[in-house]
Every structure is written in structure tokens, then in C-alpha cells.
């Protein structure tokens, strides 16, 4: 039983890649005014930081990771896991893609919840 030709399959897969790439581009280019970073460890919210109010950059030490907080952006500076994926994800400036460290269960997420005043941790 041969129902789908190779050509059709390639077209389907190419369309899937293009649609995914387009949605990634749209997500990445998204701008937002409020830059509230949330740092989670093991599913629990540890820090909430308004990145627009950060004037001097500083680091936050977690048990297995170090987070670099800067004005308008946030990144993972180092991690003790072997793959270092979270470090190479670089700086994030919007809510499109959270920085995720799967082995240590750490996540840095930017939300657009405006009006968050409670800045914990610092």
C-alpha cells in the first residue's frame, strides 16, 4: 500500500519547517514594554526582577547556576551541567523563549505582567 508519494511527503515536511520558522520569527521579534523577569528553580518562583529598573548589572547565585541580571536583559552566566545549553542560549529581552536549564530544573522567564512592584531578592 503506497498512498503518499515521496514528493508529497517532502512538500508536507517543508511546509512544516516553514510554518515553524515563521512562528519562531514572529515570537522572537515581539516587543514588550514591561520586562519582568522571573527566576524559577524546581518549579518554585525564587526571584522577580523588573529589568527596566536595573541600573547596574549584578549576578544571582543559585545552587547550580549563576544568573546575570542587566538593564533590559537577563542571561545565564554559568551552570554546572555538562551540556551548557542554558548558557549558550544567551541574553533574553522578551517573553518569547524562556532560558531553560533542564538538568538543574532552572528557568528564567520574562512575563509582561505590568504593575508588578514586588522585587524580591535584591
Amino acid at each position: 500500500m503506497k498512498s503518499i508519494s515521496n514528493l508529497k511527503l517532502i512538500v508536507i515536511f517543508a511546509a512544516l519547517i516553514l510554518a515553524s520558522a515563521a512562528s519562531i520569527l514572529i515570537m522572537t521579534e515581539r516587543r514588550q514594554d514591561a520586562l519582568i523577569a522571573e527566576i524559577y528553580s524546581e518549579g518554585k518562583l525564587l526571584y522577580t526582577i523588573d529589568l527596566n529598573k536595573v541600573t547596574e548589572s549584578y549576578t544571582i547565585e543559585l545552587p547550580h547556576n549563576t544568573v546575570l541580571v542587566e538593564h533590559g536583559q537577563i542571561s545565564m552566566k554559568c551552570a554546572d551541567c555538562p551540556d551548557q545549553v542554558c548558557v549558550r542560549q544567551g541574553k533574553i529581552k522578551n517573553g518569547a523563549y524562556p532560558i531553560v536549564c533542564l538538568p538543574n530544573r532552572v528557568e528564567i522567564r520574562i512575563t509582561n505582567k505590568a504593575g508588578v512592584d514586588a522585587v524580591t531578592g535584591r
Binding site: 520558522a21 523563549y97 524562556p98 522567564r109
Partner: peptide
């Protein structure tokens, strides 16, 4: 595991 719905936005990356 991460208790984070936002991770679902990685779906297009993972499909590619």
C-alpha cells in the same frame, strides 16, 4: 517537570 507552560513555545524549534 519544569512546571512551566511557557516552555510549550519551544514547539516550533522542536518540530524543525
Amino acid at each position: 517537570i519544569m512546571n512551566s507552560p511557557a516552555i510549550i513555545w519551544y514547539a516550533p524549534w522542536l518540530v524543525i
